[in-house]
């Protein structure tokens, strides 16, 4: 499954910036505000082409991770421009190459729509997070409201062929993986959310 995801995102890396630029502009204020709370040693996944690197406050020690070498290759110049420590690493979220309780903050951005086993991935994040650490997610999820739920369900069989699933209940997955929710903020409808959780 991981190699399928890797292959998909390698293929998508050349057009990723084009298709993401509208969303990034639309969400920039909310993302900057959320990332202003990030502290200490940070794990950021999935870093993609590094579009969000400028949104992080300066002076942090960040490890940007992605499953796709193609994405990481495009992220290099943005990571190099960060005012602080920013290293890039290739890894699968379900099998992270980091020790237990390594990071103060784990940040995700539109990641758990595409992870094949989201609960297993979130358990890995819980493992690498320090006991007083914080998980800070910016994710799109399914909707509880008609007609948006119907449309997201209708889109998912198509979108999952090239990456994301549109109807996941990521908040429930966070709870199921053992995290304790601290806050949930809807950014667009009840679909785009900032989820904050601790151990």
């Amino acid at each position: 499954m991981a190699s399928v995801a890797q292959s998909r995102w390698d293929k998508a890396s050349s057009t990723y910036d084009l298709f993401s630029r509208g969303a990034e502009r639309r969400w920039e204020v909310a993302k900057r505000k959320s990332l202003s709370h990030v502290r200490g040693r940070v794990l950021f996944l999935a870093v993609g082409t590094g579009l969000e690197v400028p949104f992080f406050p300066s002076g942090l020690d960040i490890t940007g991770m992605d499953i796709s070498w193609g994405m990481l290759s495009q992220a290099k110049s943005r990571a190099a421009g960060y005012q602080g420590g920013f290293r890039l690493a290739q890894s699968d979220v379900e099998h992270l190459a980091f020790g237990d309780e390594t990071f103060d903050t784990v940040v995700t951005s539109c990641t758990f729509c595409s992870v094949p086993d989201p609960v297993a991935g979130l358990r890995e994040l819980r493992r690498v997070l320090k006991p007083d650490g914080e998980l800070r997610m910016f994710e799109h999820t399914g909707s509880r409201w008609f007609p948006f739920r119907l449309m997201l369900n209708a889109m998912t069989p198509i979108t999952r062929r090239f990456g994301p699933e549109m109807n996941r209940d990521t908040v429930a997955n966070v709870v199921q993986s053992g995290f304790k929710l601290r806050s949930v903020q809807n950014v667009y409808l009840d679909i785009v959310k900032i989820i904050v959780a601790g151990k």
Binding site: F19, R21, A23, R26, L189, I191
Partner: peptide, 21 residues
């Protein structure tokens, strides 16, 4: 999907799909 390049994917998909329906 095309218009979302400028307007953002979700912000274009939700009202447009509702309009189409």
């Amino acid at each position: 999907t095309v218009v979302g390049i400028w307007l953002g994917a979700h912000e274009s998909h939700m009202p447009t799909m509702l309009t189409g329906m």
